[in-house]
């Protein structure tokens, strides 16, 4: 008998079938935990985020719609949103200036770049991101992986929001060009 798809498991979850959630955990916990850890930067917050993600899957009223994309992309979006909420909450409560991030923004080297190096596996997007300049990678990292707003990123670097947006625009265009190139090569 074939294995149920992720979408079918989500339907079973709506019916309250616990084995379906267990199966989704077994299939995707590595992905969920890895994203949560990459964003949160430490195990306790990553664990908290994973708990919230699977609780959301179990209680969610917004069903997964297979016609709108693959399940893993949907799950990545949920995980990212939830982990960034957790991280922002933690940042607010720390109520201090994010010194590390401010230094990174000012000097152009430090933890985010190291993190990027560590995660630089042979995925197309990782290959494409090598073509970005350091400031372009930084803006992607702070916006996508760290959940800072454009305004916050601009303040960290002491530059106008327009400059950050232009950099982001250039970064996205470069990434797309390289992704399309890689696709054509294959």
């Amino acid at each position: 008998m074939r294995n149920p798809t992720d979408g079918e498991l989500m339907r079973l979850i709506r019916e309250g079938q616990q084995h379906a959630l267990t199966e989704l955990y077994d299939r995707h916990a590595k992905l969920v935990y890895s994203i949560a850890y990459r964003i949160a930067g430490n195990e306790p917050l990553a664990r908290e985020a994973v708990q919230l993600v699977y609780t959301r899957l179990w209680t969610t009223k917004a069903d997964y719609d297979a016609s709108k994309g693959v399940f893993s992309s949907w799950l990545i979006t949920i995980t990212r949103n939830i982990t960034i909420d957790v991280l922002r909450c933690e940042r607010r409560h720390r109520s201090i200036v994010p010194i590390v991030d401010a230094n990174v923004a000012a000097t152009g080297d430090g933890a985010p770049e190291e993190a990027l190096e560590r995660s630089d596996r042979q995925s197309a997007i990782a290959t494409a991101s090598r073509s970005l300049s350091t400031p372009q990678r930084r803006v992607i990292d702070l916006l996508y992986w760290k959940g800072y707003t454009l305004k916050e990123i601009a303040e960290m670097g002491g530059e106008p929001v327009g400059t950050v947006k232009n950099r982001l625009h250039q970064a996205l265009k470069t990434l797309r060009r390289h992704l399309q190139g890689l696709k054509e090569e294959r």
């Binding site: 992905l31 708990q51 596996r121």
Partner: peptide, 27 residues
């Protein structure tokens, strides 16, 4: 086109062994 793929730039980690019981057990 690009944004949804940024999440793929990721080192896959092994979750802590006790996390499954904790997460599913709570639920």
């Amino acid at each position: 086109e690009v944004w949804d793929r940024l999440g793929e730039d990721l080192e896959i980690l092994e979750p802590p062994a006790d996390l499954k019981d904790e997460v599913l057990g709570t639920i």
